[in-house]
Design a protein around this nucleic acid. Structure first.
Length: 559
RNA sequence: UGGGGGAUCGUCUAAUGGUAGGACAGCGGACUCUGACUCCGCUAGUGAGGGUUCGAAUCCUUCUCCCCCAGCCA
């Protein structure tokens, strides 16, 4: 780890938060940088969380310091152990390490309780008997001040006693709460005597039934930061309004450190949703197959989809960190994924919608082993052998009976290259009784073995293929945007904007045999990037499309 | 008509009183054994009005629009 010498260099990211940290380090205000990533264990991490993860862990990689992983587990009614493990796996997958610094807000319950008592003794907090509805009523509105609760002026002794009895389980859920005594007339509603503790008689994943009162976010978060000596508590914009309360608590409590909160704009991505509430709904109502459905923007979904973590980190880095809230185009993310995969993914051939092609002048029963480059952009990726024979399968789309002028693929009388193999010319088509094309008959030029003709003759197009005798059957799942609308719910019910075609299952695909050996993320030549699904088996191959290749032909056709 | 925050190409962002720049998208072209990749070029922006200044995205001022807040969620 480097330490606080912080000359900004050219390729280092710069933003208002890093500028702040740099200044604090240089001035000596901060001697050792401490940040934290504080997920609530009540759902899976998504790409929006990745922005926070990359920021909090990123700055300590850049400036030195530590980033704690701290679970904000203050609400046992909503949280579950399942998420504790999943979240750690996802952060690790992204490539970050919290070392021994795995903490929980629940680790601090006893200290938090003591500090609550401190507040009571100082006359800064009181036990309120008002119901939730009454508290809401007394709180006023955005434009009208609130009114003090009739219980606001209880003595410290009484409050202490009541609070102890809350802890001792003498009251029902909702019967009493502990509130900070601040300002019922504040324009900032968070300062109108915010609730600090509530009664929740639910077993906690970590503390069991040791407690029946739990601190809420506002009381737990800042104080946990202080306990951990967090120097820069980085959160999203919606907490900006909470900062005065955050500071008020820090100032009124004998905490061991003075953390400061900084807020940045959260990530919004087009054609998807990134709110936990909505993601849960998609899973629970079965609109997707689960948290790890490859269409989900969750990290586990993206992982199953084949998106490399490096692409996610790179994407987040390109976005920058600001306080303006925007909507990032999905194509920006997709482009980053392609960029990472282009250099790393081995090329393979797979035919997603096969039609048979027979080379009439190719000797029957002959099989050739041809060399195919594994990655033309990376010579060190080497080559592999692919089997070639008289009967092949090619993509149905790669033939047209009445091709437009710019069509560079197979058509009657048109010569094309079979990738890594030979030049072939289509001579006739075979149709069934309904007039559907069922087979293409071709001739080949034996001189063009390997893909080039000695006479220097050029062909306009190159198409991919598989050998009929060697190809393996496979199922391929093509994914599209989960939502048809870029901003789901912009006009109407967000679920109505689901894309009915977000999943297209292709059965009867044929892939080259090399794909049987669990290849990781590969490029199917001319088609896209694909990875084997965890459910894929040797006798039932199953691939997910990570992202398609750019296709300027498809775009052109639309005109 | 309370409080907090934000407005720069279509999108994400740089420029902190001195030539409005980059990336993605789009368009055009070159190259190509992937209509991919790569390369080249083009299009396109300071929310509006006033002011200060030799000079304003930047400073002042008025206005407009957008986001967040009335959980015993985080």
């Amino acid at each position: 780890m480097n330490d606080s010498s912080a000359e900004p260099s050219e390729d280092e990211p710069r933003d208002f938060i890093r500028d702040r940290i740099r200044a604090d380090l240089e001035s000596g205000k901060t001697s050792a940088l401490v940040t934290r990533f504080p997920p609530e264990p009540n759902g899976y991490l998504h790409i929006g969380h990745a922005k926070s993860v990359c920021l909090n862990f990123g700055v300590v990689e850049e400036f030195g310091g530590v980033c704690n992983l701290r679970f904000d587990d203050t609400n046992p009614a909503r949280e579950d152990e399942e998420y504790l493990h999943a979240i750690q796996e996802d952060v690790r997958w992204l490539g970050f390490d919290w070392g021994d610094n795995l903490f929980h807000a629940s680790d601090y319950f006893e200290q938090l309780y003591a500090w609550a008592c401190h507040l009571i003794e100082a006359g800064c907090a009181y036990v309120d008997d008002l119901s939730a509805d009454e508290i809401r009523e007394y709180r006023g509105t955005l434009t009208e001040p609130g009114r003090p609760s009739p219980y606001r002026d209880r003595t410290a002794e009484e409050n202490l006693d009541l609070f102890a009895r809350m802890r001792a389980s003498e009251f029902e859920d909702g019967a009493k709460v502990l509130r900070a005594k601040i300002d019922m007339a504040s324009g900032n509603i968070n300062l109108r005597d915010p609730v600090l503790y509530r009664i929740i008689r639910a077993p906690h994943p970590r503390t069991g039934d040791a407690w029946c009162i739990y601190p809420n976010y506002d009381f737990a978060h800042g104080q946990s930061d202080a306990i951990e000596h967090v120097t820069h508590s980085i959160c999203t914009l919606e907490f900006e309004d909470h900062r005065p309360l955050y500071d008020w608590l820090i100032e009124n409590l004998p905490v061991p450190a003075r953390p400061r909160q900084y807020e940045f704009g959260r990530l919004n991505l087009g054609h998807t949703v990134l709110s936990k509430r909505r993601l849960v709904k998609l899973v629970e109502d079965g609109h997707v197959a689960g948290w790890d459905d490859p269409r989900m923007p969750t990290l586990t979904g993206l992982r199953r989809r084949g998106v490399p973590p490096s692409a996610i980190r790179d994407f987040i880095g390109r976005l920058g960190v600001t306080k303006s809230d925007g909507l990032v185009e999905m194509s920006y993310f997709e482009n980053t994924i392609r960029e990472h995969l282009n250099s790393s993914a081995p090329r393979r051939m797979a035919v997603l919608d096969p039609i048979k092609l027979v080379i009439e002048n190719y000797p029957e029963g002959t099989i050739e082993e041809l060399d195919a480059a594994n990655n033309p952009t990376d010579e060190t990726a080497g080559t592999r052998k692919v089997s070639f024979g008289r009967e092949l399968y090619v993509e149905r789309d790669d033939f047209m009976e009445a091709p437009p002028k710019k069509f560079r693929r197979l058509a009657i009388g048109q010569e094309v290259r079979l990738r890594f193999a030979y030049f072939v010319t289509c001579t006739e088509v075979v149709k069934d009784s309904d007039g559907n094309i069922v087979e293409l008959r071709c001739t080949y030029d034996p001189e063009s073995r390997g893909g080039d003709s000695p006479d220097g003759r050029k062909v306009r197009g190159t198409i991919h293929w598989v050998s009929a005798a060697h190809a393996l059957p496979a199922e391929v799942r093509l994914y599209d945007h989960l939502f048809a609308e870029e901003e789901p719910g912009k006009s109407g019910e967000w679920l109505d904007d689901l894309n009915p075609n977000s999943l297209e299952v292709r059965t009867g695909c044929l892939v080259e045999p090399a794909l049987a050996e669990n290849p990781g993320v590969v490029q199917f030549e001319r088609t896209g990037y694909f990875c084997p699904d965890p459910d894929s088996r040797p006798d039932a191959l199953l691939f997910n499309r990570t992202v398609s290749l750019r296709d300027s032909w498809a775009k052109d056709k639309g005109n």
